[in-house]
Design a protein around this nucleic acid. Structure first.
Lengths: 196, 196
DNA sequence: TAAATACTAGAATTATGTTCTAATCGTGGC
DNA sequence: GCCACGATTAGAACATAATTCTAGTATTTA
């Protein structure tokens, strides 16, 4: 096992352990001592790799978003019809939140003020995603299948209900999992952006 | 000025100052010393009234939700037509988020794990709100003006896009304020729950 | 008026995040 | 193959900031 591999294994271990603790008691109440212990990591290593506690939270956040974005695009891009694409976005979100509920809860809670560097990193990732989404949308808007709306409105209209329901489910305010209601949400998303 | 008045003034002062600090740097990075100083409060008093830092965060949260719920109902209940009511909900949210952006950002970020007692308090408030909303909705569903959906789906469908857009605006990911786009959001909300 | 209670005050304590110094490991140049 | 340098690990020491504690003061209640 090379040094590089060990190191990246350590980082993953820390991030994973951190997620477990953060989910259970929140960032404020997890102490780095516990993360250290559970991840078998020394103080020195942790601060070398992450800088401070927020650095761990941030790395986890960026990691999660990156994973989500990649999989979302993989679900969307193969779809050719507008109806199919829109519904695949919603369905993917529902599945993902249901399966990765701990990570989803963490990402949706936005429990952190991000550093400038993390913001930059996320801005780049978001930009790339937005561009891909845009490219997928344009033809359907041009052909008149989808409504023409201010660019920034598609995401809230399509994903808003799904994310809101997800938050409710994740915080125990709703019984039915996103997966359970994904057909309703998918249909509603389609209705709200299709040309009438 | 009676003791009771002084005390409740102190508590309001602390909550207000706390919101200012929390908004600026997040809960984790605001130190209670600063709150103490700005609110003209002694360590003893603060811990007597709030228990600990999270207690302040919690009181602020409960306070904010209570204020929001009250005003939302006041906006909805006088409306008689379904179309009018649904749109008034969305419009109210947009106005409120735009005007009370600091408080809205705080509430929407859910930056805290709530204690059981706070959860209980919120559950009661949510229950009361849900009941009032339910009573308003039932006739319109019975008369066939609104779709019949699983009870828990109305809120995400109606408010989801608005809240999602609000989060984007509050975190700088969108230029247009909720108020600016409230007609679009109101119309979309109506489309997504009206009987087709 | 006396006793109990609610509240204020700030010094003292503790908990925990973070820094620092030193040691170790692995890799690339000679 | 060996040396030197940077990257990484280690954990003791430190600093900061949350919280507790003891004591005192005002207010209500019996």
């Amino acid at each position: 096992m090379t040094r590089q591999t060990q190191t990246s294994a350590l980082k993953s271990r820390v991030i994973e352990v951190a997620l477990a603790h953060f989910s259970e008691v929140g960032i404020a109440r997890t102490n780095v001592g516990d993360i250290l212990k559970d991840a078998n990591c020394s103080v020195g290593s942790l601060y070398h790799h992450f800088g401070n506690k927020e650095g761990i939270a941030e790395a986890l956040f960026v990691d999660g978003v990156s994973q989500f974005n990649t999989n979302l695009l993989a679900a969307l891009l193969p779809r050719h019809s507008a109806n199919n694409g829109i519904k695949s976005i919603v369905t993917f979100c529902c599945e993902w939140v249901t399966d990765q509920s701990r990570l989803a809860a963490y990402l949706l809670s936005r429990e952190i003020k991000l550093s400038n560097s993390a913001k930059e990193e996320l801005r780049e990732m978001d930009g790339a995603l937005a561009q891909s989404l845009f490219d997928w949308f344009v033809p359907h808007v041009k052909s008149g299948t989808l409504q023409e709306l201010p660019t920034g409105m598609y995401v809230p209209l399509i994903c808003g209900p799904t994310l809101e329901h997800s938050r409710m489910w994740l915080s125990g305010r709703s019984r039915k999992s996103p997966r359970d209601v994904s057909p309703i949400l998918a249909e509603a998303a389609w209705q709200s952006v299709k040309r009438t």
